[in-house]
Design a protein around this nucleic acid. Structure first.
Lengths: 250, 250
DNA sequence: CGCATCATTGAAGCCCTTCAAGACTTGTGG
DNA sequence: CCACAAGTCTTGAAGGGCTTCAATGATGCG
């Protein structure tokens, strides 16, 4: 079941050939579980394989000397954790990935990717496209952090997470992150993020009582954020292919 | 002479095979001159070709409804202006490119790229790598805009421009941009950027008198910015290949 | 020479940060 | 089952970095 997520992710992001998809994903090795808070890809490390998130939520981030964290993006079930490392392995050791919930992960050796791309040249275009979507997300975040006040910035972040969750089949109104995570992604202090949440509750966008981050007025949220999901590259047709990795599931 | 810049850019960014390089760059068509301030790639448009900057400086940016501009990156002679559009043509019409100085540009049809990549599969990896370097720059900017005060942010931006200019053979202490451009890239108001420049002059980093943005103490600037050029992927060996595009030079 | 662009400086004020303390939740062990 | 600890969230108060508004100076181009 987790494996189908990988397929879905790949399919929705532009992998067009079924064969290439198989060739690529067939090499996924189930690696087992990672506890919440642990690093999946460390700051200095550069393993020779790609990490696939099978279940759970992770974030890519860097830490400043003083310990503050900047989150570049979130990964959900089926996302690649460190695709940027495939072409810039040496250059981009500055980005780490850590588990925000308990996760289960798989890996695909770079060598296997190399070989799959030799047989299916379109695969590299597909992966390039996936990587560029992440880049788009970072650019949009830059725009908001740079130019938008906290309320819109947070609203946009919430919209984005809901849209991405929906894209992998989770149609919920709850954003499964902590305020701390959102603050580190939005470039705000946790204190001010909490105050921003108060405003959003007062505006009737977030649930007043719920302990979870629950959106009760999606339309208003989108409107506040001036959210346009275009940059997420949500597909026209969302295929739901099933694929077996043939792995020993942990 | 402008054409050699294209070759140099490509070579320094990981294009390893001479043949693939030729096959790719041979399709460059000289398009002529663009005046300062003009848009090279508009906000809604999506032409079916790649734009190569042969001479001059451009920036990629988006504009908010109120007219404010966020600059994502600068392009110098030899850089691609809109490589992101090759794999995400539809999705990323939100980014425009405009000329910050008078420029001369060339184009390469997407179709020609497709064909070159069929013959030289490594070409797609090379271009992917080039695109990822841009993404790295955007991520580093996000980090600074999000977490660093104006002084360090501006210092870092200046370091980056000097490093990139040096990488294309321009070893100058002058950053050929306006304060307005830098402010829009750093996410600061022009007023505060001007004040930040005052500080940098008082610190002996920028020239006191010069009207241009002239760095007189590079070491101190790097130190202030905590600059590490790693993310720019500066090559170990910087080849200086010459290549003729065989075009009618405008 | 006049006009547009760019740069500088002052003043007022707001958004957000930091510090600090307390409430609430969750899980863990006695 | 309760006590305790650790993590998360909330709220208040003080202060600072940056923005906006406004006016002026400097530069360069037709």
């Amino acid at each position: 079941m987790t494996c189908s997520r990988v397929a879905r992710e790949s399919s929705r992001l532009g992998l067009q050939g079924w064969e290439g998809l198989q060739a690529f994903l067939g090499h996924t090795r189930i690696r087992g579980r990672i506890g919440r808070g642990e690093d999946i890809v460390g700051l200095g490390s550069s393993p020779k394989h790609l990490t696939v998130l099978l279940e759970g939520i992770t974030c890519s981030y860097t830490r400043l000397e003083d310990g503050r964290r900047q989150i570049y993006g979130f990964q959900y079930s089926g996302d690649f954790c460190d695709l940027h490392r495939y072409v810039l392995a040496e250059a981009d050791g500055a980005i780490a990935v850590s588990a925000l919930t308990d996760c289960s992960i798989g890996t695909i050796d770079f060598e296997d990717i190399d070989r799959a791309m030799e047989r299916y040249p379109d695969l590299s275009l597909a992966l390039w496209r996936v990587a560029m979507r992440e880049a788009s997300i970072a650019r949009v975040r830059l725009l908001h952090v740079s130019r938008r006040p906290a309320l819109q910035r947070v609203a946009h972040l919430l919209c984005e997470q809901l849209a991405r969750l929906r894209a992998i089949g989770i149609d919920s109104n709850v954003v499964p992150l902590t305020q701390i995570d959102l603050a580190d992604a939005a470039g705000l202090s946790t204190v001010h993020l909490s105050r921003t949440f108060s405003s959003l509750r007062r505006l009737g966008v977030l649930a007043e009582d719920s302990r979870a981050i629950e959106v009760v007025n999606r339309e208003r949220l989108v409107q506040l954020a001036e959210f346009n999901s275009h940059y997420l590259g949500v597909p026209v047709a969302l295929a739901h292919w099933e694929v077996s990795t043939g792995g020993r599931d942990a």
